[in-house]
Design a protein around this nucleic acid. Structure first.
Lengths: 234, 234
DNA sequence: CAGGAATCTCAACACTGTTCAGATTGGACT
DNA sequence: AGTCCAATCTGAACAGTGTTGAGATTCCTG
């Protein structure tokens, strides 16, 4: 830290993110304040308003940083998946485990991040977990493990299953003893979703309109570079 | 309302719950205050502390009331499910639709309630949605639509799928245009989970330890009547 | 009709997010 | 080198929050 006694902090932006993350871990997703995070960094409360427009903006920035990190971790865990020739199904199981295990390892942060806070239409997260999931699903489809008709929208049933399990766990609505049992149950959920998808038979028209807020963001971001940054203040 | 000008309100308890619920709808899950709710009811802020130990207690009470109501509604929707002879699979699809549709009709309240707020070990909700779900799953199992080995824990994969979809929608991480498309996607998620469960093959030992916080509560409540009420104040 | 228990008010506490005028600094330009 | 501007941070303030405790008001029981 180059923080000692200087008037200008150096990198207050990420220092505040770090402090907030630590506080979330110590006191829970909502048991902390902007003032506290500022004090911990050794700076006046109003200083943070030159880096984040509001407390909410800080939370969103932390969420985005965390999601990008998580996405990268998930990608790596897919790579390390067992099975002959990188079985795409095993990769997806590894992804699900990574998601759920992270939520249990870092429950307070996960509660804050996964809740999404109305996730306004802003910022493109480098490797969003959702993107990793769709990529892996594509891989499975190409390997012939998925009926073609299942593809548009299949991501949602898998994501709902994994995300649902993670959220039920971090919110304390479900409890599973032992990390081994968690892995088993997670694998079960992913397998069920994939099996269910593989068995889909009727086209069941009507879901071309479904899309994630993230894909929406990406599309908007690609089509217009001119979108002004919302993070401005003053 | 018998509220006019009286010093004693009459039924401040549920009046506060109603006001809070309305405020959540107007200003979002977190955009309201205890003071505001009290003022709306026409009472001083401190009056509410004779009925709820804290703001958090109010939130929990509202959650429980809502979950009980939702559970009842889901039960009814299962009854009205289409299909010959009350097909248990159709009943579960109806349940899933009820859950997701409610979340979309009342998104702010759903965000508050589904988040669960660490759902401490207290209070037994009359007809918790989770109980309705397991009951319907039992019905399906008895009808032979589920391999016996799938039963312990099967509730979690289905609940995760439904709850996950509902939460992704209310948190704005996914967006689906049109209530018809929502129904289709919900049915898809439920069907996938059920198909997946029906295809389960290996015993995959290790999940007898899994149980919901609610079942836990019920068990504790049945075994000891002596548990003191936590809702006390002073 | 008395009196205790329940209910509500008032005033205050420590704390929050947020704003704004002014002090302090680093870096770019002459 | 020195000047000056923009970026950065401070200090003090504002309205609003959850929560508490002492005291007023009312209801209900005996």
């Amino acid at each position: 830290m180059v923080t000692k006694g200087r008037y200008h902090h150096g990198d207050l932006h990420s220092a505040l993110l770090d402090a907030a993350e630590a506080l979330v871990r110590e006191r829970g997703a909502d048991g902390w304040s902007l003032r506290e995070a500022s004090a911990r960094v050794g700076v006046s409360p109003s200083a943070s308003y030159h880096h984040f427009a509001s407390r909410d903006t800080l939370v969103r920035a932390l969420s985005e940083r965390t999601l990008a990190w998580l996405g990268e971790r998930l990608r790596q865990e897919c790579e390390r998946a067992p099975g002959r020739r990188n079985d795409p199904q095993q990769r997806l199981i590894a992804l699900g485990r990574g998601y759920v295990n992270w939520a249990l390892e870092d429950p307070a942060v996960a509660r804050l991040v996964l809740r999404g806070g109305a996730t306004g239409p802003h910022s493109s997260i480098p490797t969003h977990p959702h993107d990793v999931l769709t990529a892996e699903l594509d891989r499975l489809a190409e390997a012939g493990g998925l009926p073609a008709l299942a593809r548009p929208g299949a991501e949602f049933v898998l994501w709902a299953a994994i995300h649902g399990l993670a959220v039920l766990l971090t919110d304390g609505l479900i409890h599973i003893d032992g990390s081994r049992a968690v892995d088993v149950q997670t694998e079960r959920v992913v397998r069920a979703a994939l099996n269910g998808l593989a068995q889909e038979t009727s086209p069941a028209a009507g879901w071309p309109a479904a899309h994630s807020a993230h894909t929406e963001r990406l599309a908007r971001h690609r089509s217009s570079q001119s979108t002004p940054e919302v993070d401005e203040n003053h």
